[in-house]
Write a protein that binds this DNA or RNA. Structure first.
Lengths: 224, 224
DNA sequence: GCGGATCTTGACGGATTCTTGACGCATACT
DNA sequence: AGTATGCGTCAAGAATCCGTCAAGATCCGC
């Protein structure tokens, strides 16, 4: 699910945006001022930020600059000010787009789609190879030494999530909610059982895995 | 040099844009209609396309769609039409930004910079680097001399808070409440223990830390 | 319905991580 | 000097987490 953070000090607009975005399938969190926005951005990974420039505590441009010191998440700025100076300042601070109020919701959604389209790299190789096994995400197949490996549906889903995020740490909650559903966030038992099975089938030495690595207390990681 | 293709059927605007863009260091080629635009796009690699929607031969949206069948070059659309329908159509066809005429040249340049910033360095990961170690917040990874450093969950959280506030002083209370929770505001013991472990793992000389600095009586500070 | 594959569940030992207290050292204050 | 406070260090016990196994339960095709 695509996670979007909406930052605005107007509760009505905030609510309207939340409802609209959720209706279009986005996972929405909100913040009403700059500090809580920056804090919220640290809590979980975001796909996009919609940021009102007129915040009560911090200058909107400062929020962008602060965010940009450690994140590249696309930022779409809302503002009541039409002056081109403000636009230039925000864009050069690191914003990716700028709409002036009042704006049409369909335009906002279209610009949002455009930003997301560009930030999610579509050129992910459909085939990922390690020195031990090969995963073909399109054909839905795993091979080792040219031999097909049979995976159960659950094993495959779990492997898929990991392989689609190479090098990246995937948290237990992420895995559980993507494979079993959001309601299973505490069944870490499943992870242990299925990770063991995956390793038995894929890792040359399942006792010391080199490609399906566990990060104790947090999650797992796939290393090509 | 950054190559930009400008497509517009108004010779005056075309000339004005060419001069302005060249004055700002861009390498400009021009086209006056859709067919020659698509042809020009095949001739040499482009960093960006500025496209007027009102072309004599082809619908501007069709030009984008055509272009998108084989190229991902960023497209900035100019248009005299303010209707949100047109915007949505162009953006969904594959445009990356949309400005309505009349527009300020400085705004155009700022939007152009924003687009180029995002497309030219897509591999610029959100990593924070020091001369001793590198922190990749997205992948949740710390490396030193190319080697992965293993951090426990708590060590990572603490490092994360510090790295997300570079140069800034982070108070003990802030650290404790973000890592252990608001109820642990007095357990400054934890900070000492975990700071020592972080330094042992990350600082070349953990006895005289240069990146994880303590501010006696107040808190800690991360220096890149 | 039957049988095989797949999924859930619980229990165990071993490994990792967290907590806790004690000690030495430096700095500041009396 | 003497005392107090704050910081870094260390290690040991407690708590948690992980890999493993196997026994049901459930699902599915035949």
């Amino acid at each position: 699910m695509t996670a979007v953070l909406v930052v605005d000090d107007d509760p009505h607009l905030l609510k309207a945006l939340r409802i609209t975005l959720q209706a279009h399938g986005y996972d929405v969190t909100t913040a009403a001022d700059g500090h809580s926005a920056l804090l919220a951005a640290t809590q979980h990974p975001l796909a996009l930020v919609i940021l009102d420039l007129g915040l009560p505590d911090l200058d909107g441009t400062s929020v962008i600059r602060e965010l940009r010191t450690w994140s590249r998440v696309p930022v779409l700025v809302l503002s009541a000010r039409h002056g081109s100076e403000d636009k230039v300042e925000a864009l050069d601070a690191g914003a990716d787009d700028y709409i002036t109020k009042p704006f049409g919701l369909d335009e906002l959604l279209a610009r949002l789609r455009a930003l997301l389209r560009r930030s999610t790299d579509p050129d992910q190789e459909p085939v990922v190879t390690t020195d031990a096994f090969t995963v073909d995400l399109e054909k839905h197949r795993v091979t080792r030494d040219g031999q097909d490996i049979k995976l159960t549906p659950t094993e495959w889903k779990m492997l898929e999530v990991l392989v689609r995020n190479p090098e990246k740490l995937v948290t237990q909650q992420q895995l559980l909610s993507e494979v079993w559903g959001p309601a299973y966030a505490k069944e870490t038992n499943y992870l242990r059982v299925y990770m063991a099975q995956l390793r038995r089938k894929l890792e040359p030495e399942s006792s010391s895995p080199r490609h399906l690595v566990t990060e104790a207390g947090i999650g797992y990681r796939f290393l090509p």
